[in-house]
Computed example of a mutant assay.
Amino acid sequence: MSAAFALMICGTAYPADLTGAGSSFAAPLYRAWADSIHHQTGLSLTYQSLGSGQGQKRVMARSVDFGASDLPLPGRVLDAAGLYQFPTAIGAIVVVINVPGIPANQMKLDGPTLAALFDGRITTWADPRLRALNPGLRLPDLDVLPIHREEASGTSHVFADYLHSVAPDWKTGMWGDGAEAQGNDGVAASVRQSIGGIGFVEYAFARRDRLNTVKLKNRAGQFVAPGTDAFASAALSADWPHADHYAVNLLNAPAPQAWPIMSATFALVPLHPANKAAASATKVFFRYGLKQGDDIARDLDYVPLPAPVKDRVLSGWP
């Protein structure tokens, strides 16, 4: 923790600068919360968007005040590492394409076809399987250029889990000859620059970069477009009370209009921190985000946590 001075919040001295690292999925939300709380209190956050794997490693090494991961850790790992894990928001992973002549949300894909686009079995956008799903679209005879994450990534893990759930022959790492990019930012930029490109990113990045998204066939058999209603429909299906350390499964939710690729994003904090003041400031930051940051989350296309889950998170924080 790099702060050299402190500030006062409600009569208590806290470090003025917090450090966090990990999930690029959660980066827009944490930075927006940080901007808001900084204006009110002076508390600031230095957050490194390095991917979920690095977030886990750095908080385990105690080189940051909190880690961030879209891939929840199992209880045995949390216990061994002395970490408290909790969700902060729910987000959607969407498929983005750069196919000339195909507007946003006009292409329809089902799970097996999506898997085939990423593992190299479908190599052209004029493939008969794509034409069968999209009889009204003029699909070009253009090479498919799949793009995936290069680092240990919670977004990749969630996306691969979804592919395996809808295409059982899919195995993690079956990315074919696809290109690699770093972080949601890198994938978004690569798709935008690659004619014929297809990738997967957190929805906020797709909207920010005005990328063309697709409709996906959900568990109920409906082709749904990404958006607030579809995300909320999926989020309501979460079984929070029975989730191990809040590790809810939001993939392929059964609701008729549910978006099929949803994930909670998680923060990780030490149970026995060496720097008590930094730990208290971290709790101030997340309490602010959970209690006062819902409008910010919605503006960035995240789904806020249900109120009972927030209360449980904060009351259970040691």
Rank of each mutant, 00 (worst) to 15 (best):
V248G: 12
T172P: 15
A258C: 07
A204C: 06
V269M: 05
L73N: 05
G67T: 01
A116Q: 14
K276D: 02
P241V: 03
A152S: 14
W259R: 01
L29G: 04
A247Y: 04
R287E: 15
D299M: 11
S24R: 00
P260R: 06
P103I: 06
D185Q: 14
M1P: 15
G176K: 01
V224F: 00
Q106F: 00
D161G: 15
R207F: 00
D169F: 00
T265M: 07
P87I: 00
G197N: 09
S24C: 14
M8Y: 10
K291S: 14
D295Q: 13
D169C: 02
A13D: 07
R208V: 03
V303W: 01
R31M: 10
A32I: 02
F159Y: 11
Y84Q: 11
F231A: 12
A16G: 14
S63G: 04
A179E: 14
A4S: 15
W125H: 09
N105Q: 12
L83G: 04
M174I: 01
A279I: 01
A81K: 00
P112T: 06
I198W: 03
P72Q: 11
N105Y: 10
Q106Y: 00
P226Y: 05
F86H: 03
L139G: 06
S69N: 05
A264C: 02
H39Q: 11
A234K: 04
P28H: 11
V59S: 07
F66Q: 12
L73P: 04
Y203I: 05
A220E: 06
